[in-house]
Design a protein around this nucleic acid. Structure first.
Lengths: 205, 205
DNA sequence: TGTACATCAGTGAACGCGCGTTCACTGATGTAC
DNA sequence: TGTACATCAGTGAACGCGCGTTCACTGATGTAC
């Protein structure tokens, strides 16, 4: 005896409640923030994005005014998540992260290889440097924060010193991602990491 | 008396000689190398590019096998021109550029503002970090050269020191291009520049 | 040097495709009674 | 609690557009004699 099961060929029925809507919006935005860090701002298309969260393209405009509106929000989200991952596993009340911990986790092979969950400044600096003023302003605020927080973790407490460190951190991760020779890529990270760590030992007089 | 001039409505007639062909190819490639640094690898379209050198799109394939073939060559050209501009006005036989001159010209407002004629590593690092292995290999070679040459100009002659410097140089120019507040952008360049210059004074012990 | 012919750089119409966006429609959700 | 109705999240066809690429054509260049 053969049993032919009636298969539901419809996609999983999407909810229609307000809570479902908020959840859909969140899934779209989260996916976009990842995609943007992984393959760049311009790589995100409405159709592909909606398909990746099992929705159809038409519904996109229930959540965002336009692709460019989405991109602006995805950039901010990516920056927030990137910054949060830098302070991951911190509970409120924990002492602020040490300079050494910050450098070791940022200038690392793990960070180089985890573009999607890593720092969005490193992932998107070139793209945003070419983008409109609004996008650049959003990232500027995160750069300022990044510099300010790093400065507080340094012996010198000097923002100028932190600017050097942040520039080198971002540059090193970027160059390590370009480098095709894994040994050279690792060596670059190690050289920059060691020197940034040494930089925080109080210099000569 | 009114004179109605017969206006030649045809575009300037293009030559058909072999020399003309080489010249066309060169014009296309040079324009592409600029465009790529100015607005990113993905921004270059065959139609717009050909229009910008006063040709029609169909002829493109007399010169390049495909858009992606052009892009690979434009990337290399952009890197060559960027590297050349870093050593501009040097005649053969001149002493190699000093460390101080290199830092002062790279980490500068002029370089920040001259994306099209500046270093292609800074302009395209994010894009290339996401590109195929072939493109990454092309840029890798230029990074290695850049590090090697900078090391030779340093007191320590140390490639690791040069890796820190190159990372900070590239990172600083990128961040300065993102920063929307001109004062902060200038200050970041100055802070990084001063510290990179100080780095070459022989350290303690 | 002059003529006849092959070559081939450049032209522009045409192709299929994916894009962002719009819209009439559907059916589950949520509300008024 | 039950019913009737309005709302609106999600669907999928359709739009105009720019893209990369192809191709039949044109006329100047370059060559063979």
């Amino acid at each position: 005896m053969i049993i032919i099961q009636k298969v539901n060929t419809r996609k999983t029925t999407m909810g229609h409640s307000q809570a479902d809507k908020a959840q859909s919006r969140e899934r779209i935005l989260r996916k976009a923030a990842d995609a943007v860090r992984d393959t760049g701002l311009e790589s995100v298309s409405v159709g592909k994005l909606m398909r990746s969260v099992d929705l159809t393209h038409g519904g996109f405009y229930n959540h965002f005014a336009s692709r460019s509106d989405l991109l602006a929000q995805a950039l901010e989200r990516a920056l927030v998540e990137g910054a949060r991952s830098a302070t991951a596993s911190m509970k409120p009340g924990d002492a602020p992260r040490s300079y050494e911990m910050r450098i070791r986790s940022y200038v690392s092979r793990a960070h180089r290889d985890a573009r999607t969950s890593g720092c969005a400044i490193a992932a998107l600096a070139s793209d945003v440097s070419r983008a409109d003023e609004a996008s650049r302003a959003v990232m500027s605020a995160f750069i300022d924060d990044f510099v300010g927080q790093l400065a507080q973790s340094m012996d010198s407490q000097d923002e100028g010193d932190a600017m050097l460190a942040v520039s080198a951190m971002v540059g090193a991760v970027l160059l390590a991602r370009v480098q095709t020779d894994p040994k050279k890529s690792d060596a670059l990270l190690k050289s920059v990491r060691d020197r940034l760590l040494a930089l925080n030992q109080d210099g000569p007089a």
